[in-house]
Amino acid sequence: MLIFSFFKTLMNTEITVELKNEVSIRGTIKSIDQFLNIKLDNATVVDELKWPHMSSTHDMFIRGSVVRYVHIPPDKVDIGLLEDATRREAEKSKAGAA
């Protein structure tokens, strides 16, 4: 749930989603679920020339499983906090496994 928790803090921020099919889409993240399905508003394809057919689409729902990377504005991330959250998550899963 860490990643989900993390993405929840990115609501309404502009991100760039890089898909496994090489398409990159920039848009405002409107919602996300625990499958990391992403709903984007004001979405635009980064390389319009290469993916012209995407240019007419502005609201997108991206299935989480097709996402390769998500580019995030650095100032939206609290690294120290994220580190601690990661530690907690790791410990929890360790405890769960044990």
């Binding site: 749930m1 860490l2 928790s5 993390f6 929840k8 803090t9 609290d78 906090l81 994220l82 601690d84 959250a85 907690r88 998550e89």
Partner: peptide, 8 residues
Amino acid sequence: EDFYYQVF
């Protein structure tokens, strides 16, 4: 459950 989000 939701440490990062809550604290953030």
